[in-house]
Structure formats: structure tokens, C-alpha cells
Design a protein around this nucleic acid. Structure first.
Lengths: 231, 231
DNA sequence: CCAAAAGTGTTCATCGTACACCCATGT
DNA sequence: ACATGGGTGTACGATGAACACTTTTGG
């Protein structure tokens, strides 16, 4: 290892992952029981340590895959937490990421192995260190982002109904929305393909399924379009 | 030093600072000539290494003060850059911050010592490593923030005129604004105190001076107010 | 007296918001 | 037949966008 900066302190780095899911009723977080000291046994975000030859994003991807089995899902850097005393064991700088996943896709066995549980964001247990801060920031970020980018779809199955989509935004913003206005607005953007099929699992009449069309979105964006939902 | 996580790699951390100023014509960046290898002699952001017993934010404050002499100015974390090869000398994870300063307040001697220069954002020289990425992200962030938070005032003197303020937003968004609409909108928020004095430095008639009132802003925010400027 | 920048109001279009009834179907 | 959730349109108010003339004063 060549050392261009030999006099400077090396420090311990971590990545922590705020993982969101949506079960058609509530927005949820995937939390683990921490299995090492300090803070062993406390609720915690899933985390890990980036290797010397591993980018931060790759480390976050690895951590996410370790717990959920998922790859190529929405994953974005949130914030770097670097207060000196944030981890009482030792000085650790943690880069927090947040992820949006389709809740039906995660790997149940891995979750079980890690003693992880889905917890509603409305009722989060006490978390280790400053993980609660991370969660709060992730929630604020998600709420800001979901207004201006079509990321809600990351939390829904490939095919979803209009009431499902509306329910998601209601869960994110903790606010009831008017279904006529919601539907009008979202369809007017022209990002959804309406399918022939209906989903009858939650009503007798059945609700039409839609699919988000990323190509249309990209095309519109390149023409200066901005996604916007005002909840 | 107690080691709770003894097996994990320690890594080299840095902070880099994107420093914005406004000279009544253009938005500018304070850049230095890098004085160490690798990349010695190239244009660069001002940076430094957090100490073991120093938070990331404190490190960024220190770096900012080293170059400008300023403290207690707007300083916000931007992003953590952690690609393996981003610094060809050695693996360094850099936490970028961006700062908004009143351009008349900086310490000229310090800037000279560091071989630093104010460069217009419209014409940024080639920068070392991934600093150009940092600058671009800082600009996007500034543009987003300045719409929804009253941070523009950080770039202006305590007292400023309406044309000055408008000029600032025009510089940030690279777009001409209608002075009637601008004035109407900004005054309607009730965040500015109009002073008796006029500034005659840029016209014969003179323009009234205003002052941003942070107390009023806080009060409005606590009542659910959102700053918004649509440029 | 004139050039140069400051200051000020109205109209129109757009978009968000509020709101209520009919439809389809499984039981 | 009825209960349950799905689907649809209109009217009003607020807000952003376009736009032109008068004022002041130093030179």
C-alpha cells in the first residue's frame, strides 16, 4: 500500500441501511437485533464495514443483499454521520443509505437468520446509537423525493391498482387523499400503462392494474418534464 | 484506544469544501491550487483530514476557517464520495460540504497564502479528482435549496437592495426574472424589513435597503409556513 | 435635460381543491 | 338485493406569468 498521506489518521468506516417496504397498509422498516457489542441485543439498522477495495455504494449494496437477498433495487446515499461519540465503542463514521424495496420480494430466510423484523414507521422501537436520526432523515428524504420523482413504484409490485398506489402515498404522507384528484393528477402525467387485467383481491368489482413505464418517464424528462405530486 | 471492531479496515477520511460567493454579478467558487501530491498544482477544492477526536462537521468548519477566516456561516454536508479509485494516490473517502459566504467578509491574506482564487461557476477550470462532480452536485443542491429555504441571504451583505437580491437569484438560476413578480413574491412572504436608508452605489435614484429577519422566518415556519420562490 | 436604474398594479391562464353519485359483482 | 370498494367530472379560488409606464437624480 502506497501512502501519499502518511501522517493522517485512518478511521473506521461503516455503512448503515434504512430499508423501506410497503405492505398495502403501512410503510415499514426492516430492523435487526444487533448481534455485537456495543449495543448487542438492541434494535438497529442493518450495517457493515466497507472493505479497502470496495466503494461505499457497493458496500451498501452488499449489506442490503445480506439481509434481503435483493440487488438492483432503489438505494441512495442519505448522509454521513461523523460525530465523535456516536458509537460508544469506538469512533466510527457511518454513511447511511436508504433503500426502497418491494416487500414481497425479500428473502425470508435471510431475514430470519438476522433476527430482523418489519416494523411500522409509525411505531419504531428504540434504536441503537443515532440510528433513529438516520431513520427520521430517511423519512423526510423519502417524503421530499416522492413528490418530485416517481420512486413510489419501487415500493409496489410491478403491477398495482390505483387504490394501492393512492394508499402508498397516503402511508408515506400520513394524510388522506381525494381519489378523484389523485387519479386525475397521476394519470395526467402519462407515466402509467393501464392493463386489461383486474385485481379482485380486495373488492368484488375488481380494480384495474397499472404498470409504471420508465421509458415514457425518461422520454418526458428529456423534454423538460418534471414529476410532481402535491400531497 | 479500545477496539470493539478490531478486524475491520481503517480508512483515510477527508472533507472537501465547495465555497460559494456572490459578487453582485456572478456566482463564484473559491478554489485553491493543490499543494500536495497527487495532483499537485491542479485546481482543487479546499480540503482536510478529520482528526480522530473531531466530528466531520467540525472538520469542515476548520477547513473553511483555514481558507476564509470565517466561522458560523452556512455550511452543509453534501455527499460522501467513496469510490475506490477516486483519489489515485490512495483510497480516500471524502465527505463534501458546501458553504455560502458573504464574499466581502473573507480573509484576503489567508486566501493569498493558499493560492486560492474566486472563479465564476460559469467557467470552472479543470479540477483534481472528482471535485468537479462535487461542484456540480453543490450547484444542483443550492438551486434546489434556494427555492424552498431562505438561504440566498447567506450570500448577500446584512443589508441589501431588491435589485441585488434579484440579481443573486438570477445568477443562481441563470435566468432573467421579472422584477415586479419577484418583488411582489418576496415581499409577500413578510421576511424582509425595509430600512430607511438607500444604497446609491449603483444608481442615481438609489435603491432601498432591506434586511432579512430570521425571527420572523422562524415564527412563520412554526405556523406551518413554507418559503417558496418559483424561478 | 437626459440617461439610467428603481419602483409599482392589473389581467389572464393554469392548476389545485373540494365535492357526490353511479358501477360492478360476490355473497 | 345489498354491501363493498372502484370509478368518474365540474365549479371555484388561488397562484404564477406576462406586461409598460412613472419616478428620481447625478452628470
Amino acid at each position: 500500500m502506497s501512502l501519499f498521506y502518511p501522517l493522517e489518521d485512518r478511521q473506521l468506516l461503516a455503512v448503515d441501511c434504512v430499508i423501506f417496504g410497503f405492505d398495502n397498509f403501512e410503510l415499514k422498516l426492516l430492523l435487526i437485533k444487533r448481534n455485537m457489542e456495543p449495543g448487542k441485543g438492541m434494535w438497529s439498522l442493518m450495517g457493515g464495514f466497507p472493505k479497502h477495495d470496495e466503494g461505499l455504494y457497493q458496500a451498501a449494496e452488499r449489506v442490503l443483499k445480506q439481509l434481503t437477498g435483493l440487488q438492483n433495487v432503489y438505494l441512495e446515499q442519505l448522509f454521513a454521520y461523523g460525530e465523535v461519540g456516536r458509537d460508544p465503542g469506538e469512533r466510527v463514521v457511518s454513511i447511511a443509505y436508504y433503500s426502497l424495496i418491494k416487500i414481497e420480494d425479500y428473502d425470508k430466510d435471510l431475514v430470519k437468520e438476522n433476527f430482523a423484523l418489519w416494523q411500522p414507521v409509525s411505531d419504531i422501537p428504540e434504536l441503537v446509537f443515532d440510528h433513529r436520526q438516520m431513520v427520521d432523515k430517511a423519512l423526510r428524504r423519502l417524503r421530499r423525493r416522492a413528490r418530485i420523482q416517481p420512486i413510489g413504484f419501487e415500493l409496489l409490485p410491478e403491477k398495482f391498482t390505483m387504490p394501492q398506489l393512492q394508499g402508498l402515498y397516503e402511508a408515506i404522507y400520513q394524510k388522506e387523499l381525494d381519489k378523484r384528484n389523485f387519479c386525475k393528477k397521476i394519470l395526467s402525467m402519462g407515466l402509467l400503462d393501464k392493463l386489461e387485467e383486474k385485481d379482485k383481491s380486495s373488492s368484488k368489482k375488481g380494480a384495474f392494474l397499472y404498470r409504471f413505464n420508465p421509458e415514457k418517464y425518461q422520454e418526458l424528462v428529456s423534454k423538460g418534464f418534471y414529476f410532481s405530486l402535491d400531497v
